[in-house]
Write a protein that binds this DNA or RNA. Structure first.
Lengths: 146, 146
DNA sequence: ACTTAAGTTTACGTTAACGTAAACGTCAAT
DNA sequence: ATTGACGTTTACGTTAACGTAAACTTAAGT
């Protein structure tokens, strides 16, 4: 059954997005589902595209960037000139991802630290809050150390 | 010399952002540099904040989310109640990051594949572009397989 | 004294990525 | 036949994250 299809709401539910979002992606020519009469019918390929888009979003790519990545799989752009350009894009993208992984690891290290501080503060029962901070919203102009 | 300071343009240059961006962060109370007369003067702590903000951005966090992370380092919010809440936030954030790393690894695997395809296509000299695609901008309504 | 560089505030403009609502079609079930 | 559940198009609204420009001020160099 290699020609399975999906309804718009099924995909929306599966991916935790709204139907509006899916139609929006279509407006942007990121997907082009078939029609059965008036209804949209999504192929596994369409579904895969959405998956790539969402994956891209999670790591901070714009929709256009996701499209660029998806287009890499598109045999249309495969003349020799563009293939070299594409390889460079891949290289660049790879470098971005490497940086992102470093950022994430740094963040995780930071979280470790924060968590330690929390647990430590809880253990020693250090509740230091003398004035009960009566100031509801002091414009937040007062920042703290680090 | 633990009280080094930075000018706005120095930081802008260092981080590859504009001064407008830095002032924008200040508008949002994300940083609060001192003033020397009218000029802003940034402390190492301010600089660290900007670093965290930019790191967050690179992995797709919103500015507010970055602020949330930064606030974890802020001893102000440390009463016992909030400490537990904070630990949960940390936990959740950790899970997000784990997912992001997976996304990145998946992307990297995809890039490997694309690159292989490129090099393979170049090797065999498969230049298939028969009609020279005369169509300037066919509304892009025609999508491709995957 | 003049220019140049860097900084300032205020305000309006812009782009991406949807949300929300109106107004309507379709089909199965009661 | 009507009520939902689900779908559709069209269009205007919204938020985040700045960009851009105007119209200064201040400090430093020549």
């Amino acid at each position: 059954m290699p020609d399975k299809t999906y309804t718009i709401s099924a995909l929306a539910k599966e991916f935790g997005i709204t139907t509006r979002t899916i139609r929006f992606y279509e407006e942007k020519s990121m997907i082009s589902p078939m029609r059965e009469g008036q209804k949209r019918l999504y192929s596994p390929a369409d579904r895969a595209r959405i998956k790539l888009i969402l994956r891209g979003k999670r790591i901070g790519m714009t929709l256009q960037e996701s499209v660029d990545v998806i287009d890499m799989y598109d045999p249309e752009h495969n003349n020799a000139d563009q293939l070299h350009a594409l390889i460079n894009v891949v290289k660049q993208r790879r470098e971005n991802l490497r940086q992102q992984k470093k950022d994430i690891d740094d963040m995780l290290a930071g979280l470790d630290e924060v968590q330690s501080l929390c647990e430590q503060a809880l253990a020693t029962g250090t509740t230091d809050n003398p004035t009960l901070t009566p100031n509801p919203n002091p414009n937040k102009a007062d920042r703290k150390p680090l």
